[in-house]
Amino acid sequence: MGWLPRHGRVLLRFWSTALASQTEYLFNFSVELLAMAGNLAGSWFVLSLFFRHGQQLGGWRWEEALVVLGAYTLLDGVATTLLRPNLNAIVTLVQNGSLDFVLLKPIDSQFWLSTRLIAPVGLPQIALGAGLMLWAAARAGAAPSPLALASTTVLLLAASVSLYSLWFLVAATSIWFTKIWNATEVLRNVLVAGRYPISAYPSGVRSLLTLVLPVAFLTTVPAEALLARAGSHPLPLALLVAAGLFTASRLFWRHALRFYTSASS
């Protein structure tokens, strides 16, 4: 029995039980859908304000900027589906000391913590984001080649890995600080910057959002690939960022666990 089938089977079990327990909360589901629609409508409105008197935002036309908003919506959907339910649960586990039970399980603890739950309410948002990206790209006059579509998909996957790693890095600090709910809140609020193309920011902020917190690689780079705007080929660099952040999250988790002393000690 290989490595992958085992984790795949476990994943299937995780998600089917999570789905079963989520169907109890239909009210929550409808509220989340309404929130998603409201958020997209509001973001669309604020973005349109930048185009009331001008034709472009940081060198991006209206339809092109909408592609960035689509990428943001998609990644926010990924966060809602996978990151928020799982990584917010880490805080509770550390607080109650029930992280012990996770560490004792014969499976990688980071895998268990990161994939245990799934919130299907984020899935429509992912679809909506992808739809917005494709629709706006078509309106912008870009006819994405199969190659551009493929590289956009790979870039969005890399962006999801980067996003996950950042989130996990922050959540892992709860080993020291216990109550870290607000730290993920900080991350979420800074990532809002990804709603706009990176060139819309002043140069200082731009380098901050590229080098320190790679917001640029999350939304702008995939949008550029879809619109075939990219002069250089960002694919290797984006993959490198994702791989680097993922490795950092694994190393950091191992390091953090050495400081975990369970709840009562």
Binding site: L49, F50, H53, G54, Y201
Partner: peptide, 14 residues
């Protein structure tokens, strides 16, 4: 958020 929005608005020039 208001500071992020300030960064975008200050560049937008609209």
């Amino acid at each position: 958020l208001p500071l992020i929005m300030l960064a975008v608005w200050s560049q937008a020039g609209v």
